[in-house]
Design a protein around this nucleic acid. Structure first.
Lengths: 211, 211
DNA sequence: GATAACTTGTGAAGAAATTCACAATCTCTC
DNA sequence: GAGAGATTGTGAATTTCTTCACAAGTTATC
């Protein structure tokens, strides 16, 4: 299989969201053009993105909304439940734990951890906060797939190492630092400071014009 | 001026973070090679990124840590304070309002808004929550630069429209939907569901190998 | 002040992503 | 069942991004 660009995966995710909208509105079929318009891209881009995975449309007609949505769910691996733990029960961690959009999309939060003994034992959204030390012991038992890191900057790497040692396969990092993991571990970082700096750059340099 | 790629801006932001680390460790100069190693990129990439903005190094020697950091701050527009409002005082909004990393980097939170009358008047991190209706009236007075959207999916577009009408120039969107703004308004979206789906894709399709 | 050891800045080459453009195919209508 | 109209799937062209590779400049050493 050919290497798939990250940008392609992001767009697939978007397309799926739009398809669900269209499905809710009762539409049965949709063209690459309509999908592109909704997502701010081009019809050629939509068709190329899909072409990496097969051919799902009918010439002259477009795509069946329900079928394409289902195919995209398969491609994105959303046909199953993913078991997620949140490490760090501070403001961000707690907010994430209580965000029900995750469960809705098949990401089930099965544990919340913190290193602060004062927090251990308290409950967040129906889950009891456990000590980080227990991580390794719990991981296999709970069949954890994904660890969400919501810890302070200086704790991020050590905690990531712990999770990797416990056998985690994917990490989503909200700590404002770059962390390093073995390459067989999937990693995504969301760094809000960096995003804000991106806005700052745009504001400072104006809309950048070619030439 | 040539168009600068978003990926370049993200890397500049990273370089700055590393430079601050190096500065704290008392290093005076650094080579593109060392900077690249820290950031998981190549020295050629570092030099190319910087070359869009000028030439800041000394051949044979490298870069002055302090000077390059200062230049990057200028390029990224971090030499000034940016005035930020957070719209939506739910879990995410409140967590963001209390995150002091922003202030530290020059992003000053000057207002928190919510549409829920029950929340209006309460305080978050020293700021009184105001009604969304007041947005337009407050914007100019408070010289707001950036609006952070932390509202539910269905409120995102209407609230963004409100902010745009009030004259906002940049929006950072945490709502799990795509929003549309006029092209002179800078927009960044952080969609956690989408990031998780990216991980799901990687887990499902394995590390993707070329060919 | 000549030589060796480094390291930048940048055109040119290469790779990757996007867009173009059109043959192939499907539906609908008469 | 033939013709008109629509839309896909995909090689080829184009554009964008990354890497290569090397001349030019700097410092240190003897």
């Amino acid at each position: 299989m050919k290497r798939i660009a990250e940008s392609t995966v992001r767009r697939l995710s978007l397309y799926l969201r739009f398809l669900e909208e269209f499905e809710a509105r009762g539409l049965a079929t949709i063209s690459s053009d309509e999908l592109a318009a909704r997502g701010g891209t081009t019809s050629a881009q939509v068709r190329k993105d899909l072409s990496f995975f097969g051919s799902f449309g009918k010439r002259g007609l477009g795509y069946s909304v329900a079928e394409l949505a289902s195919r995209l769910r398969d491609i994105l691996g959303l046909g199953r439940q993913w078991r997620v733990v949140i490490i760090g029960a501070g403001k961000i961690g707690a907010a994430l734990a209580q965000y029900h959009g995750f469960r809705q999309r098949g990401f089930m939060i099965v544990g919340v951890y913190d290193s602060d003994p004062a927090k251990v034992g308290k409950r967040v959204d129906g889950l009891t906060i456990r000590a980080v030390d227990q991580l390794a012991a719990d991981f296999r038992r709970d069949a954890v797939d994904i660890a969400v890191l919501a810890v302070p900057a200086d704790a991020a790497q050590p905690v990531a190492d712990l999770a990797v040692a416990a056998g985690i396969r994917a990490i989503m990092n909200f700590a404002p630092v770059q962390i390093h993991v073995p390459e067989q571990v999937a990693l995504k970082t969301v760094n809000m400071a960096m995003e804000l700096e991106g806005l700052s750059f745009l504001l400072t340099n104006g809309r950048i014009v070619d030439n």
